[in-house]
Amino acid sequence: MKIKLKFGDATATFLLSPTHPKTPHYKKTKDGDIIKFRRMIKFDKSLREEQLKKDSDLYVKLLDSDIEYDLNLTGKIINRTYRIKLDKNFKPVYKYEKFDIRIKPDGKLEERKHKIRVSNIKQELPVVISEKAISYPDFIKRYVLKKSYNIIHEDEGNFDLIYNLAKDLHEKQQLRQIFAFNEETLKPEPLIITHEGTLYNLAFLQGIVDNRRYCLRLLLSDMELRWEPKI
């Protein structure tokens, strides 16, 4: 992944790498057999259809019914599957409309036509590093650090640019807020790292330097550090 950042007058593209990749490991038995996590079929739509025909007291009817699992099918190991949509008759539907449904905390329901979340970190308009800064304790008390990435220089010519930024942040012990812009409205919008990915409303940069080495991190948050009232 790449991010296009604007530093003062300069604009440069950098690599993004997750700070918390999964720990590589294997699963084995005591005898040395390799263990795999496999998916198996329990039943397919034919059985589901029979179950759903009984529209009321489904649970009771299922218990009393003589519906049987297809023993030739149950337990069949499957590898890859594709996502599809089914109508009420269990027929695949290929052309459909997508809607975003939002349920507010007060229970109100809102809906709109689905708006595609397009990644906005490597578009024509760069992500801007603002002058807005926050101290370490302030960030910890206010926001939840949900995801972070290392920002790495790709082009040797950008090394000084990124090193100096990390050094400045390290010396001031501050985090600098960054903003992405919507290319149509030209207004700031939450950072979207991947296509149809999470909206990160708050994004900051943190820098650490050690001699001529740097670590510049993109810190992402999608919620404040607070709790809902106990009901």
């Binding site: 699963k27 198996m40 329990k42 397919d44």
Partner: peptide, 8 residues
């Protein structure tokens, strides 16, 4: 309709 299981 899909179950997941560890197998050897």
């Amino acid at each position: 309709s899909i179950a997941q299981q560890y197998v050897n």
